[in-house]
Amino acid sequence: MNIQSGTVTTTLAPANPWALVPPLGNLDAYISAVNRLPLLTHEEEQTYARALKDNNDLDAAGRLVMSHLRLVVSISRQYLGYGLPHGDLIQEGNVGLMKAVKRFDPDQGVRLVSYAMHWIKAEIHEYILKNWRMVKVATTKAQRKLFFNLRSMKQGFKADAAAADAATHRDTLSDREIDAVAEQLNVKREEVIEMETRLSGGDVLLDPAPSDDGEQAFGPIAYLADAAHEPTAMIESRQRDYLATDGIADALASLDERSRRIVEERWLKVNDDGTGGMTLHELAAVYGVSAERIRQIEVAAMKKMKKALAEYA
């Protein structure tokens, strides 16, 4: 504050550029706010760009970014046809704008708006390719070019057909149109056909939500799962195999000779006619004891084997 000749003059510090767009409740309010931000003159842009380059002035970077936010909004509108949220497109475009501001060289003789358009579009393109489908649709430079031009070219073909009163024009490309796209974009016609098929196909919900009547809707998840190779099932199967071989052998080895033979004859042997092994009475005759005594020996042996198998498991 200065006092000169009885008058009071106040010198205000520059406003914080990052506070020019306060937190807003919805996208429309944000777009309205950025459209009201003042544009920089060429001289102002050069001044701020040099301050950023020479002195790493973050306030200067902020003013360069804020004055071009409306450019991001304008460019992002061109990509609304991919079904992604407009706010997300703007956010990714803003990332590209900040990258452009960081790399901008005022000595190149171009305006920031021309330089930033490339970075904004590149960031939005990358976001669309990563999020438009779970499975990537474009991995090479030629495929990316095809991806982002095929939709607009199809619209052009439809417009030409409408002008020629071709009411029966198909949604899919004709052979002539496929050849025209392939020639113009310098790709194979097979790539045009594949890309059109993938772009026209919708996403499939693997696990549909239950219907209104409470019944579970059938979805691909029902037949995509491979229960035979599910980790828990594989571990349980391996454990059963071990118990049926090494486990049983170790459990039998813990028994005395008579108990082991009784268990083997009763449970592990099968006659040629498919029937089981020896009966209690047949074993009783072999050992000269009662059938009840054979049953008692069998019960005790089975308990001992269960204990051994539990320890083995």
Score class of each variant (00 low, 15 high):
residue 59 D to L: 11
residue 25 G to W: 02
residue 29 A to V: 02
residue 85 P to A: 13
residue 48 Y to V: 13
residue 82 Y to A: 04
residue 36 R to I: 02
residue 64 L to F: 03
residue 34 V to R: 01
residue 77 R to H: 13
residue 67 S to G: 15
residue 56 N to E: 12
residue 56 N to M: 03
residue 65 V to R: 00
residue 73 V to Y: 04
residue 63 R to T: 05
residue 48 Y to E: 10
residue 57 D to L: 07
residue 68 H to L: 14
residue 48 Y to L: 11
residue 33 A to L: 01
residue 26 N to Q: 12
residue 45 E to A: 03
residue 53 K to L: 14
residue 43 E to N: 13
residue 78 Q to E: 13
residue 53 K to S: 12
residue 71 L to P: 01
residue 45 E to L: 08
residue 85 P to C: 05
residue 47 T to D: 12
residue 38 P to W: 09
residue 79 Y to V: 12
residue 27 L to C: 08
residue 44 E to V: 08
residue 85 P to R: 14
residue 66 M to V: 09
residue 68 H to T: 00
residue 86 H to N: 09
residue 28 D to P: 04
residue 39 L to I: 14
residue 81 G to W: 05
residue 87 G to L: 07
residue 72 V to Q: 05
residue 38 P to K: 13
residue 58 L to Q: 14
residue 61 A to I: 03
residue 88 D to P: 06
residue 60 A to L: 02
residue 85 P to V: 05
residue 34 V to I: 12
residue 30 Y to T: 01
residue 25 G to H: 13
residue 89 L to G: 14
residue 40 L to E: 09
residue 72 V to N: 01
residue 45 E to W: 01
residue 61 A to K: 05
residue 30 Y to A: 00
residue 61 A to H: 02
residue 25 G to N: 07
residue 62 G to C: 05
residue 87 G to N: 12
residue 60 A to I: 04
residue 27 L to D: 06
residue 73 V to G: 01
residue 73 V to W: 02
residue 35 N to S: 12
residue 68 H to F: 07
residue 47 T to W: 06
residue 43 E to S: 10
residue 76 S to I: 10
residue 86 H to K: 10
residue 69 L to W: 07
residue 48 Y to A: 10
residue 62 G to Q: 02
residue 45 E to G: 01
residue 46 Q to W: 08
residue 40 L to S: 09
residue 65 V to G: 03
residue 34 V to T: 09
residue 26 N to E: 10
residue 28 D to G: 09
residue 77 R to N: 10
residue 81 G to Y: 08
residue 57 D to M: 08
residue 78 Q to P: 00
residue 71 L to F: 05
residue 38 P to Q: 13
residue 84 L to A: 01
residue 33 A to V: 04
residue 41 T to I: 04
residue 32 S to T: 11
residue 66 M to T: 13
residue 46 Q to P: 03
residue 83 G to M: 04
residue 25 G to K: 11
residue 60 A to P: 05
residue 43 E to I: 11
residue 74 S to V: 09
residue 44 E to P: 02
residue 88 D to T: 00
residue 75 I to G: 10
residue 59 D to I: 00
residue 72 V to P: 00
residue 49 A to F: 02
residue 24 L to D: 00
residue 72 V to A: 02
residue 81 G to Q: 11
residue 76 S to V: 07
residue 45 E to N: 04
residue 26 N to H: 15
residue 44 E to D: 11
residue 55 N to T: 05
residue 39 L to Y: 12
residue 52 L to F: 08
residue 26 N to P: 12
residue 46 Q to C: 11
residue 80 L to G: 14
residue 86 H to L: 12
residue 65 V to L: 10
